[in-house]
């Protein structure tokens, strides 16, 4: 589906494509950052954690580019209706993705802090939470490419599952901390990791709302 064909407005068309490509690129970078930040934490890989932290600058740079293009389109092309929503929608998506990148940096920082400390006395399934959140991000990017609002609504509805995993992890960690106070520091840090991952999933719901707005003009509260 290619609804953007603008035979009479090639400049607008080209700007819109560039904005969309940049946003998708940001999405792919965030997807990788989630996986790497979690792996760095679980594998105690300080170098990988550092790469996630420095790599966030690239996400930020793309967000700045998106802002620049959107501003230029609004100033020079006076978009209306769907064209204006497209620009505003992608502008907001770039902000959400930039924040998702920041959540990954938070996870990577905690990973770097915990690398030298002994592990918790029982396994916590953060990998599962991370995989579920990353899958949400990837699905949302596909929905965006296909401009599929039904899929976007389904993805937003699946946020419940992320919330359930998150709450279970927090409960597990709390029990460990209650049982052995030596786990309190690491446990608190891991709760923060879970919280950052859960926040990424919440922002996926915002992306779904953006796509619905972009396609229909309606502001829908999903999730």
């Amino acid at each position: 589906m290619e609804p953007l064909a603008h035979p009479l407005r090639p400049t607008l068309d080209s700007e819109q494509r560039q904005v969309r490509d940049l946003v998708l690129e940001m999405g792919e970078m965030v997807d990788v950052a989630i996986a790497h930040a979690t792996r760095a934490l679980l594998d105690r890989d300080v170098e990988m954690a550092s790469q996630v932290i420095t790599g966030d600058a690239d996400v930020n740079a793309r967000q700045a580019e998106v802002h620049e293009h959107c501003l230029s389109v609004i100033l020079t092309q006076a978009p209306v209706a769907r064209d204006l929503r497209e620009i505003l929608g992608f502008l907001h998506m770039s902000d959400e993705l930039e924040r998702m990148g920041d959540h990954c940096v938070n996870v990577a920082r905690i990973g770097r802090n915990l690398a030298d400390l002994p592990p918790l006395r029982a396994p916590i399934d953060l990998a599962m939470l991370s995989r579920t959140v990353a899958a949400q991000v990837r699905d949302m990017l596909n929905a965006l490419v296909g401009r599929d609002i039904d899929r976007a609504r389904e993805i937003a509805a699946r946020d419940d599952r992320v919330d359930r995993i998150y709450h279970r992890i927090v409960d597990d960690i709390l029990q460990l901390m209650v049982a052995d106070t030596r786990d309190v520091y690491a446990g608190t840090q891991l709760i923060l990791v879970a919280m950052n991952l859960e926040r990424i999933a919440d922002r996926v719901t915002n992306l779904a709302e953006d796509l619905v707005f972009l396609e229909t003009g309606n502001v829908e509260e999903l999730g």
């Binding site: 603008h6 035979p7 407005r9 209306v80 209706a81 769907r82 003009g217």
Partner: peptide, 18 residues
């Protein structure tokens, strides 16, 4: 009308598609 035109022809016109 400029935000959510109801008719496809209106949308095509105001967005400069013809």
């Amino acid at each position: 009308l400029f935000n959510r035109p109801q008719d496809r022809r209106t949308e095509d016109y105001i967005t400069g598609r013809f």
